[in-house]
């Protein structure tokens, strides 16, 4: 992976033409005003010929960018296909969390997994979205979602309980695949 090394030129001797400043100013103004006029009349070809405009602004609340699968949003719990959360309340995520934002109350269950979290709370006002919990989880029970809109007016509302965190597994296939690929070499 050889990256091309660019040598920065320092103290470049400018020609008299460049040092006289005015022609270079005019050149700059020509470039910016070209963009200005192209964009000023840009809506005409956009309407007439459906040609795409040069403007690449995304109108955020109405339009959204699709994040890559590697994106880390707020963590969520995986609800398995059988309708039970995958978490076994081992407490690894609670231990590794550098912001101490996860708190789990384990309990016993009749199911095969024997343990389940009675409460599972993530304090989103403390979470730093590092993704350690996802990395450490042996059951793929906690994953990072693509949700970034977690702002709220009240800190008490930032406490996400288990019901708020559960997301069906079928919506998380992409992230699951990514996690398996990314952390495969440590899965022994």
């Amino acid at each position: 992976m050889a990256i091309g090394i660019v040598k920065v030129k320092r103290n470049v001797k400018m020609t008299f033409w460049e040092r006289s400043y005015i022609p270079e100013v005019l050149r700059g103004i020509a470039i910016t005003s070209r963009h200005f006029f192209i964009n000023l009349v840009g809506f005409i070809p956009a309407i007439l010929f459906g040609k795409e405009r040069k403007i690449f602004t995304v109108y955020y609340p109405e339009e959204r960018v699709k994040y890559p699968d590697a994106y880390r949003g707020r963590p969520i719990l995986v609800l398995g296909d059988d309708g039970v959360e995958k978490c076994v309340a081992c407490g690894l995520c609670e231990r590794i969390c550098p912001a101490f934002c996860i708190s789990i109350q384990p309990a016993e269950t009749e199911l095969d997994k024997e343990r389940y979290p009675e409460t599972f709370t993530i304090d989103q006002s403390r979470c730093i979205v590092c993704g350690f919990c996802e990395e450490v989880c042996p059951k793929e029970a906690i994953l990072m979602s693509q949700d970034t809109e977690i702002a709220d007016y009240d800190r008490k509302k930032m406490l996400y309980r288990k019901e708020d965190l559960l997301v069906a597994e079928k919506d998380l296939r992409m992230r699951q695949a990514y996690v398996r690929g990314a952390f495969a070499r440590w899965n022994y």
Binding site: T32, S33, H35, F36, N39, K54, I55, T57
Partner: peptide, 10 residues
């Protein structure tokens, strides 16, 4: 608006 147009914004 002019700065936006000059910088290909909206």
């Amino acid at each position: 608006k002019q700065s936006a147009l000059m910088q290909d914004r909206v």
